[in-house]
Design a protein around this nucleic acid. Sequence first.
DNA 1: TAGAGATCTGGACGTGAAAT
DNA 2: ATTTCACGTCCAGATCTCTA
Length: 331
Amino acid sequence: MVTIADVARAAGVSPSTVSYVLSGKRAISDATRLRVQRSIRRLGYRPNAGARALAGKRTNVLALVAPLRADQNVPVVMRFVGATAARARDHDHDVLLLTADEGAEGLHRVAASALADALIVMDVEAGEPRVPVLRSLERPSVLIGVPDDVRDLTCVDLDFVAAGADCLAHLADLGHRRVALIGPSPAVYRRGTSYAGRFRRGFEQAAARRGVRAAVLACPPTYEGLRACLDGLPAGVTGLVVHNEAVLGPLLSELERRGARVPGDVSVLAVCPPDLAEAHAVPLTSVDIPADELGALAVDLAVRQLDGLGAPEVRLLPPRLTARGSTGPAT
DNA sequence: TAGAGATCTGGACGTGAAAT
DNA sequence: ATTTCACGTCCAGATCTCTA
């Protein structure tokens, strides 16, 4: 294994000088820099990550805490993971993915053992039990999601309250007077998952303002669960807002099977990433879940904190509603 | 030759394996 | 059982270079 000492010897300088040539954090004369760079190339030197973490007190690793639960839509979670990993590389960091539901103990473990420099936490609940721990950690953290108490926290998310309101408004503007929200599974609501509750609140508040009758149904991510949901819809519903990516495909199939045309008999508005909305015979009107943007923003804010910049803040991205073919005037 | 600025070096850090 | 060593970075301090 080629070490920094080998490079230093070959270039006739000390290991520190090689380090500064690599990091660019100190002025090094052109002659010395070129000599060191030539030695690095000639010997094929790559810094040892473990030694680098030891010396620099930085691992250049961001921990992404994304518990994978049965009631979650894994492909959507993976979009966040991909976006986070890609942006982390832009900042010369890698991502440590933690998918086990370890709660506060997991945060302690990662922070105390210096496995990562900062934590990005997903699947945030309204009364998030991990918040006190996050506040007490000596490492920066960013939540993708917004708990009720955001004191001293940095949070990013889609403005789900506005998203819920926009969905309702879109249907109301088309003349729909009876609508329903097909939401995530009952367990997601029971846990008080932040995004689900906020979307529902925005939806219901807007319905009250607009005088629209709105039902909310928690839908398990199974075909059977979906059918039960549709069977439980109040009579006369002409507009559906689906905040549950896993049942979008089954929903469209089941509506077709029941002879309900989209959007002729029922309008369908989805909350999902845009490519998912476009991947159906009838492209779905949707409010985007900007996973790429949110993942990148979370990384940017975490790195800013690591650099000693940036105060706690809550950054909510405004919803973007794209009308496609699945919503139309109420009949 | 003194002083200032530029450039470079030594040692500590944590942990486990190897040497004594 | 105890000591030494490896690994890379960064701070404090040493050394070099240039200018007046």
